[in-house]
């Protein structure tokens, strides 16, 4: 085992040396590092499969998403219903596939919202400094202090129950960590020579931020985004458990397990809670593996 690893290390060094010679970007290096991280790679493959299933849901789901069959309520898996049916006689497998669509897009879109707010706030605060910085950081403090679920529920009941609102709520409450990271990175970058140079060339603030600063802090942003998706999927499940997530009849993995939270279901109908539970778990696990792999791969300090 150790030998193998060492071999790989050697191989990798060779690869890197070659790429260096050809003058290839640090992204390629990162990618080659990522490729040798088995866990991250597994995560990537699993995720790709899940995303593929979600995108093609309309073609591959064996039954309609909401098709109710009152004659086949709570039936165990059979050749007709491969993963059995739920309490309304809807096909669990089809709902899982469509639920993947919902859960994954909640994760993606909520994180994108957090990303936009977080990067913007962090960049402005870090670059401008002074009063603006102070004001933004107080806003960050305020949002960080919000007890998450309570505020999420308050906002959700103001906005009303739609999947877009769930995404918005999650995104709007989870950008603070990123804002702090971006601000800190920009504070250190700001002092660097190339920024001074850009300033003396008379570039506008927003140009400096978008063209010169942000590309240099893509790595932490990317890592945050990956892990954020995992977090958002879990949060949606938690909100569903409290009755404020994605609402039935639209399925999400979160509301599928929370619909099955009674002792009876846990005891007698494994097909209603194990598959969605397992899918959330596998998805989040894959994303976490990938995110961790990315962190290692993109970390410039981890020189081999």
């Amino acid at each position: 085992m150790i030998n193998k690893d060492e071999n790989k290390l050697v191989n990798n060094k060779n690869v890197e040396n070659k790429t260096m010679l050809k003058g290839i970007s640090p992204w390629k290096i990162a990618f080659s590092r990522l490729k040798k991280n088995k866990l991250a790679l597994t995560g990537l493959v699993v995720l790709s499969i899940l995303i593929f299933l979600a995108i093609t849901a309309d073609f591959i789901a064996p039954h309609g998403r909401d098709h109710i069959d009152l004659f086949n309520v709570n039936t165990a898996p059979s050749s007709e219903y491969l993963l059995g049916t739920d309490e309304l006689g809807r096909d669990v497998l089809s709902r899982l596939i469509f639920g993947g669509q919902v859960s994954l897009s909640v994760g993606l879109i909520a994180t994108s919202i957090a990303l936009v707010i977080g990067v913007m706030m962090g960049a402005i605060a870090g670059y401008t400094g002074g009063l603006v910085d102070n004001a933004i950081m107080r806003i960050v403090d305020i949002v960080m202090c919000f007890p998450f679920f309570v505020i999420a529920i308050v906002i959700a009941s103001i906005l009303g129950p739609s999947i877009w609102n769930v995404m918005f709520v999650i995104g709007a409450l989870s950008w603070t960590g990123l804002a702090r990271i971006v601000r800190a990175e920009i504070l250190t970058l700001k002092e660097k020579e190339f920024i001074e140079a850009a300033k003396s060339l008379g570039l506008e603030g927003h140009e400096i931020i978008t063209k010169h600063l942000l590309p240099n802090i893509l790595a932490p942003i990317l890592v945050f985004a990956t892990l954020g998706i995992a977090g958002a999927i879990l949060v949606e499940a938690g909100l569903s458990f409290l009755g404020f997530g994605v609402r039935q009849p639209q399925p999400s993995w979160g509301n599928m397990i929370s619909a099955a939270q009674s002792m009876t279901v846990l005891r007698l109908r494994w097909w209603q809670w194990i598959p969605p539970g397992l899918l959330i778990f596998i998805t989040v696990l894959s994303i976490n593996f990938l995110g961790d792999g990315l962190r290692d791969a993109l970390d410039p300090r981890l020189k081999q």
Binding site: I68, E87, S157, G160, P161, R247, Q248, P249
Partner: peptide
């Protein structure tokens, strides 16, 4: 009652009436 909502949606759908379901917290 929660489960009856999608059922009613399907039943009325069968006579050509589209039903939009909106679940909301009791106070709302």
């Amino acid at each position: 009652r929660e489960k009856s909502a999608p059922l009613i949606q399907q039943n009325l759908g069968d006579i050509g009436i589209a039903i939009e379901l909106e679940i909301m917290e009791f106070g709302t």
